[in-house]
């Protein structure tokens, strides 16, 4: 059946010929047989739970373990300091690095203070300010991504949540310095992407990155938030899925048992990946690096044109 399905999808589409009827019948059948997609739903769901694990190292944990010195810079200079995004100057191999990341809390008080890692517009505007600062002095930027998503609230909307994410994306397209983004936990929709339009986008093995949370996806498409397991599988949100789809630049294997068991080990892996990628990126002329960044995101998408499937 799989073979027939791939044959069908290679055929050119002709007007009036409904090959897709047959394709969808086969897909339905495959799904009923329990092999609708690669991997099973419990494996995908395990990854979601691991990515959200309360003992996983967060941005400030990585900063503490990776850099001998760090000076946090705060505030968007307009409205407030958003504790759900932290950023600042890190001492890195005798020079400076700008580190910006989502920050979750561990106990009830700090979770509330960090708003569960869900930024408001002032968080994104602080990120932009720090990016501009880094760009001015030629300081490379590392972003660490770990958020369920941007905060959905009335005041956040009134202050332009959508525009704040969009302008952060725009700022990242324009940077002359090298940028490395690492998904360390939850890469939740636009709120995560805002910090991830980078020259290199890497994922830790047990992190997830998705257009929507599996719960919200299930609530809409399955009409039942409890169907989050099949939604997690269908969304192809694990690092292995996304590497296969070729939409990220690499996966970083975690220490035995996962990053939550060994913070030092995880930090070592992230640091090595950072060094390797920065070394490569710094060989490229700033102008060319910027052009390559635009080209990379320009190529993302899969569609059919005149009957051919294009990647």
């Amino acid at each position: 059946m799989r073979k027939r399905l791939s044959e069908l999808s290679r055929l050119p589409t002709l007007p009036g010929v409904h090959l897709r009827d047959e394709a969808s019948k086969i897909k339905r059948r495959l799904h009923e047989l329990g092999g609708g997609g690669r991997g099973d739903s419990s494996a995908a769901w395990e990854k979601v739970k691991l990515a959200r694990h309360a003992d996983r190292p967060y941005t400030l944990d990585y900063i503490g373990l990776m850099f001998p010195g760090f000076i946090e810079l705060r505030g968007d200079r307009c409205f407030a300091n958003d504790p759900a995004i932290v950023g600042g100057l890190a001492a890195y191999q005798g020079r400076t690095l700008m580190v910006i990341g989502h920050q979750k809390g561990r106990d009830l008080a700090s979770r509330t203070q960090r708003n569960f890692g869900m930024p408001r517009p002032e968080g994104y505007r602080k990120a932009q300010r720090l990016m501009a600062l880094a760009d001015k002095f030629g300081i490379p930027i590392l972003t660490l991504i770990d958020t369920p998503g941007a905060f959905p609230g009335i005041a956040a909307e009134e202050r332009g949540q959508g525009g704040a994410i969009a302008s952060t994306l725009m700022r990242m397209t324009r940077l002359r310095v090298p940028t490395v983004a690492i998904i360390i936990g939850e890469g939740g929709s636009g709120g995560a992407l805002a910090l991830a339009l980078a020259d290199r986008v890497l994922m830790l093995e047990n992190s997830v990155y998705s257009v929507i949370t599996p719960e919200a996806c299930a609530a809409i498409l399955w009409r039942d938030a409890k169907e989050a397991r099949p939604a997690a599988r269908a969304l192809k949100m694990t690092s292995a899925d996304l590497e296969e789809l070729e939409v990220i630049d690499g996966v970083l294997p975690e220490p035995r048992g996962g990053a939550h068991r060994d913070h030092e080990g995880a930090a070592r892996i992230v640091k090595e990946a950072l060094e390797e990628n920065l070394r490569e990126l710094e060989m490229i002329h700033p102008q060319a690096r910027r052009q390559e960044r635009l080209e990379k995101f320009r190529r993302i998408g899969v569609w059919r044109e005149n009957g051919l499937t294009l990647f």
Partner: peptide
């Protein structure tokens, strides 16, 4: 939703 992360990354693409 049905195109997963590919859809999310269209935000990056249109920004470019």
């Amino acid at each position: 939703m049905q195109e997963g992360l590919l859809s999310l990354l269209q935000m990056a693409k249109t920004t470019c």
